[in-house]
Design a protein around this nucleic acid. Structure first.
Length: 556
RNA sequence: UGACCUAUGGUGUAAAGGUAACACACCAGUUUUUGGUUCUGGUUUUCUAGGUUCGAAUCCUAGUAGGUCAACCA
């Protein structure tokens, strides 16, 4: 830690600092990141990952990656692999790769122990009956008629459950606590249910599986987790978490809760993300529009930018809705320093420089990144025939339009100042070709023309242009707060969440672009090559646009 | 008509009884061969009512508002 500039602590850091100051956990703190392998990780998980690993890093501790795989119905090995990849990619290294299923035998023995202490019983009630017994938050529940079974009978029946004698749903094991407890989770909660289903790791070894509440705390305890950090909705589970640990008399791990991340214009629930994948609203878990780690990666977000984002949003216990613009700020901040600038014309229109020699080609040296003096220059071919952006020409331009129009002058980036002379129109009235003249003495780096223009536009030489497909992504939702949305959230999907320019042109140097390497298309945004690209066809994803105060001005 | 959690600018997050600050967003200007970047400045804040105190965003009480909890999900 850097004592020279005291950084304010979040509430978890404060707790840990106090623990350490009072001599607790002298061997270091231990945290864990415990995903259920039933889907891909998203930006909300990134917050938890950065928190858990970050806390351990900061206070000299360790972090386990533990898969909470107690429900074989929804879990798959595919997800385990994807999760490991994402955590690694974010830049974190776990101490141990563990699974709740590693502890099935031990958990079974814990359950037997509680039965022997008369703190658990086998219940033959149906799911509906148990639900009815629970009562409501404002009225006490009623005890199960099976609650008074003898220890021996419970032991026998629980063994039978394990041995597969009973069908799914026939029996459950419940803790014997208090059916009148104000906390619903303390009203004889379920510990085990029967599921004759193969598990992705233990196969058919088990047909009874522990519930979350009976697995999570004990797993933490067995691993010596000092700070078990989870989201707010588990707050009401904490008394039960503590109850099992106390009755079992095992290592006293402690649970702390923080507010989950909510991002504006973004669906975060795993269920809804899965639905979008299944209903093909998006092309997969790693669709660049998805808030998943894999989607953000494919979109071009860097691990550093996501870590930085998680750092900036802070950690607290109140509900929050973070503006997407903060995430965008973080990736722009990162890429501005590192991404090479190149030229690409997304919506091309031809520009002919009338007074430029027919067959001449000049190789212009253009800097790669003005923010990085080390980045050097590259050679870009210039010729009589160019593509420029359709947007950069207006027949009847408004005031302060620093681009091309009849009789207007602009600089072509890294090349010459030109003046528009005339233009041809297509039958539909759109611009077909623009004709301009250039000033030979205005060449970048050796400009003696003394002409001052306000605007500089990008271009690509027609004979040297490389055709590419460019995919521009926008926010997936048209509403700010997705938490307000129910099952009809699909109605609020942005119909323009992706725009594809199939016939865009990029400069020659991009022919050797590497997948995921960020570049800035000058005046457009940050882009990266998509894995869909092949040697015959380049495909770029827009990670984020550049800030555009001109567009903002126009919308006024 | 319960228990628990929470309440600070537009959005987040700080301020551990002593000048309410930082970031994003927004606005204005500066710089710039990217309407990018940089730099400078600005607008905007303690849920309400009582109480304790020389002094309250902070402590207490009561309200109010939001959230969570009644899955054989996690």
């Amino acid at each position: 830690m850097d004592d020279s500039k005291p950084k304010s602590l979040n509430f978890l850091e404060e707790i840990i600092q106090q623990n350490l100051a009072s001599g607790q956990y002298s061997e270091g703190i231990f945290t864990r990141f415990p995903p259920e392998p039933n889907g891909y990780l998203h930006i909300g998980h990134a917050k938890s990952i950065c928190l858990n690993f970050g806390l351990a890093l900061r206070f000299g501790g360790k972090t386990n990656l533990r898969f909470d795989d107690t429900n074989p119905i929804t879990e798959e090995t595919e997800y385990v692999e994807a999760i490991k990849k994402d955590v690694s990619w974010l830049g974190f290294t776990w101490e141990n790769e563990l699974y709740a299923s590693n502890y099935f035998e031990q958990l079974y023995q814990f359950a037997v122990e509680l039965i022997k202490k008369s703190l658990a019983f086998v219940d033959d009630s149906t799911a509906e009956q148990i639900a009815a017994q629970k009562g409501t938050p404002t009225s006490a529940g009623t005890e199960s008629p099976y609650r008074k079974r003898s220890v021996d009978e419970n032991l026998t029946l629980f063994k039978e459950m394990r041995d597969g004698i009973h069908v799914d749903g026939a029996k459950v094991l419940r803790a014997k606590i208090d059916m009148a407890h104000a906390n619903m989770h303390m009203r004889d909660p379920l510990m085990y249910r029967i599921r004759h289903v193969a598990h992705h790791r233990t196969g058919k070894t088990w047909c009874i599986y522990p519930m979350y509440d009976f697995a999570h705390g004990q797993s933490d305890s067995m691993e010596g987790i000092t700070h078990s950090i989870c989201t707010l909705e588990f707050d009401v589970h904490r008394p039960l978490y503590d109850w099992f640990i106390e009755k079992l008399n095992i290592f006293p791990t402690h649970q702390y809760e923080f507010a989950r991340l909510n991002l504006s214009h973004t669906v975060m629930s795993k269920r809804k993300l899965l639905q979008m994948v299944n209903e093909k609203i998006v092309k997969g878990w790693d669709d660049p529009r998805m808030p998943t780690i894999s989607g953000l990666r494919r979109r071009g977000y860097t691990a550093a930018s996501i870590r930085n984002f998680c750092d900036r949003i802070g950690v607290a216990k109140r509900d929050n809705l973070i503006d997407l613009s903060l995430l965008e700020f973080c990736i722009r901040e990162d890429l501005n320093k590192s991404a090479d600038r190149v030229m690409a014309v997304l919506d091309p229109v031809e520009l002919v420089i009338s007074n430029y020699p027919e067959d001449q080609v000049e190789e212009l040296a253009i800097e790669n990144n003005p923010e990085d003096p080390e980045s050097g220059k590259r050679s870009v071919p210039f010729s009589k025939n160019l593509y420029i952006e359709r947007d950069d020409f207006m027949l009847d331009p408004p005031k302060k339009f620093f681009r091309l129009g009849p009789d207007l002058m602009v600089r072509l980036k890294g090349a010459y100042i030109i003046k528009c002379e005339f233009f041809d129109l297509n039958e539909d009235g759109s611009v077909k070709t623009i004709y301009a003249t250039y000033f030979p003495n205005s060449k970048s780096g050796s400009d003696t023309s003394e002409i001052h223009v306000k605007g500089t536009i990008h271009w690509v030489s027609v004979p040297h242009a490389v055709e590419a497909e460019i995919r521009s992504f926008n926010r997936l939702l048209i509403v700010e707060d997705a938490s307000e949305l129910g099952d009809d959230f699909l109605k609020f999907i942005n119909p323009e969440s992706v725009q594809i320019n199939e016939r865009a042109f990029v400069e020659r140097s991009l022919r050797s672009a590497g997948v995921n390497k960020a570049v800035q298309f000058i005046r457009k945004g940050y882009y990266c090559l998509d894995p869909d690209a092949n040697p015959d066809k380049l495909v770029f994803n827009r990670t984020v646009t550049l800030k555009d105060t001109w567009a903002k001005e126009q919308n006024k």
